[in-house]
Amino acid sequence: MAMNSVPPASAMQSVLRLLSIPGLKKLGVGPLLAALVLLAIVIITLLSPWLAPHDPLEMQPLLRLKGPMPDYPLGTDPYGRDLYSRVLIGGRVSLLIGIGAAVVSVLIGLLIGLVAGFFRMLDTIIMRIMDSLMAIPSILLAIALVALNGPSITSVIMAITIPEIPRVVRLVRSVVLTAREEPYVEAAQALGSSMPKILFQHLMPNTMAPLIVQGTYILASAILTEAILSFLGAGVSTEIPTWGNIMAEGRQYFRIKPELILWPGLMLSLCILSINLLGDTARDMLDPRLKKRGE
C-alpha cells in the first residue's frame, strides 16, 4: 500500500511528448542521414530502368570480367553483362521481397498474437506451435520451403515470412497480456464494454508502436535473408538480377574480381543499415522504458 509507488507517466504520454516537433529536432544527424540514404536507394531502384546505361540482362561474351571502362563504370560480370546496371536494378526484387515479407508477417502475427493474448484457452496451443516454429532455424526452414516450392518471388516471400511470424506473435501477445492488466482496461470492463471492443479499441492500439519497430527490423532481416538464400542457391531464379544473385555469381571469381561481391554487398549493407538505424530511432522514440533513463 505504498503511497508514493505510482509509476511514472504512462507510455503514451511519453510517445506524445516525443512525437511533438521539438522531439523530432533532437533526433540528430544519424537517423536523418539514414533516411536520406534509404530514400536515395529507393529512388535509384525505382528509376533504374532509365538510369541504367545497359540492359542488365544483355550478355557480351567478348566483354567478360572486364574492369571499369568509360561505358561500363563498374566493369562487367562473367557473362559480360554491365555490373553497374545490374547493381542499380538488383534492389528492385530485394526491396519488393523485403516489404512483402514485413507486411505479411506483421499482419498474420498481429492476428494470431491478439487471439493468443486474449483467449486463454487457445493461448497454450498457439504458443506451443510458435515455440516449435522458433526452434527451426529460419534459414533452413526458408531453404526447405524454397527447395520445395520452386524459386519464385512468392515462395521466397513465404519462406521468409513463416519463420518471422512467431516473433511477431510473441511480441503482440506480451503487449496484450501487459495491457489487459491496466486499470483502464478493467474500468472498460466495468463500463460494460464488449470483448471485441476492449480487444480492438483498448488493447490493439498498444501493439502499434512496437509493431512499427518490429516491422522495420523484419524488413531489414528479410532483405538480408533474401540475399543469403540467393547466395546459397536457394533464392529467386538466377535469371532475375538481385543483389544476392549477383553476389552468388561472383563467388567463383572472387579472387579475380572482388567487385562482383563488394558493390552489390555495399548497396545491400547500406540499405539494411539505414533501415536498422531508422528502426532503432523509432524504438528509442516509442519505447518509454529506454527513454526514461535520459530524462
Binding site: A220, L224, A227, I228, F231, M247, F254, R255, P258, I261, L262, G265, L268, S269, I272, L273, N276, L277, D280
Partner: peptide
C-alpha cells in the same frame, strides 16, 4: 552501438569475403 548496427546489417558472407580480402590475401 554503431558497430552493433553494422554487424546486423552487413551480410555474413560479405564480412567473410572482406576478411579474406584483407587478412588472408
Amino acid at each position: 552501438m554503431s558497430f552493433s548496427v553494422l554487424g546486423f546489417s552487413v551480410p555474413v558472407f560479405v564480412i567473410g569475403y572482406l576478411f579474406i580480402l584483407v587478412f588472408a590475401i
